[in-house]
Simulated assay, not measured.
Amino acid sequence: MVRRSVLVVVLAAAAVGGGAAAAVPMERALTVARGAAIAGTSCTAFPDDSWWHADISSLPVHPRSDAWLSHMSSDVDLHPDFGPSYGDGPDYGIPITVVSASHARVKVGFQYADESDRVRYPLGKDTRIEGGRSSDGDRHAVIVDEDRCRLYETWHTRKQGTRWKAGSGAVWDLTSNALRPEGWTSADAAGLPILPGLLRWSEVRDDTIDHPIRFTTDVSSRHHLWPARHDAGSEDSLDYPPMGARFRLKASFSAAE
């Protein structure tokens, strides 16, 4: 099991549903919307019928929703955490690098090799890394092969001498809904891809967000819910949110504010 010092990840729904701010179960048949292309490519962030594009506005509230909310940074408001802001510079946030199929591929040495996809990754001088290459944070790298519609993601990405290393890595076919093996991490501790959960500027410009937004909380349980494949929480109690949980904003919440 991968354990990390960074905040763990659950998912928040961009759609506004009925009732109080709440977690909702995802194991039901859902209606879906068409996903927008990733900027600079003709690839979408997974197929139109992916759960990433599911409309959850009519799903019931999860029985443990109130308990989860009460154990999630209850003294801190939900807030955007992307930049540049507060002097952090242009490398703050999780950038996306787009490459062609001809981009050179390199071997990567993984700390958690048994749960990583051990193929060659299109890393190079052009790879943008979260926080910059001198960062002491998560250093995620998110790379899209625009010709093959393949997504490559690594965590704790760094180059030491002539060799690339990372904590973990995963490769995704953006035309498929296939999940990772149960129990496997990815570049995200929930075993999910990072890119489809990012809020992108083109979505804000077009006033259309058809997917959940990735967010962090200070603590989670040692459990996960579908579609998550992995967890790295610190609490055994089911009253703490599991990785893979999906949260919905109150119907009264105004996105215009």
Rank of each mutant, 00 (worst) to 15 (best):
D77W: 15
I94G: 05
R148S: 07
S50F: 06
V106C: 01
S85Y: 10
E146W: 00
W155T: 00
G87D: 06
L78K: 14
K107E: 14
V119D: 09
P80I: 13
D55I: 10
H156W: 05
S58M: 12
K125G: 07
K159G: 03
H53M: 11
T41F: 12
V106F: 03
W51F: 14
M72P: 02
A45C: 12
G131F: 00
V76Q: 13
V119L: 08
W52S: 12
D75N: 13
P95G: 01
G161V: 04
I129H: 00
P95V: 08
S116F: 10
G131S: 08
D147H: 04
A101N: 09
S85M: 09
G161A: 00
H62K: 11
V108W: 02
S134Y: 04
T97I: 03
S100E: 14
V142R: 01
Y86T: 07
P122S: 12
S65W: 07
G93R: 01
D88P: 03
Y152L: 06
R120Q: 13
D88N: 10
T44W: 06
K107M: 07
L78H: 15
H79F: 15
S135W: 01
Q111W: 11
A45K: 04
Y152R: 07
D81K: 10
R163I: 05
A166L: 02
F110V: 04
H53P: 10
D126N: 08
V144A: 05
Q160M: 14
V61A: 11
T127R: 05
S73P: 15
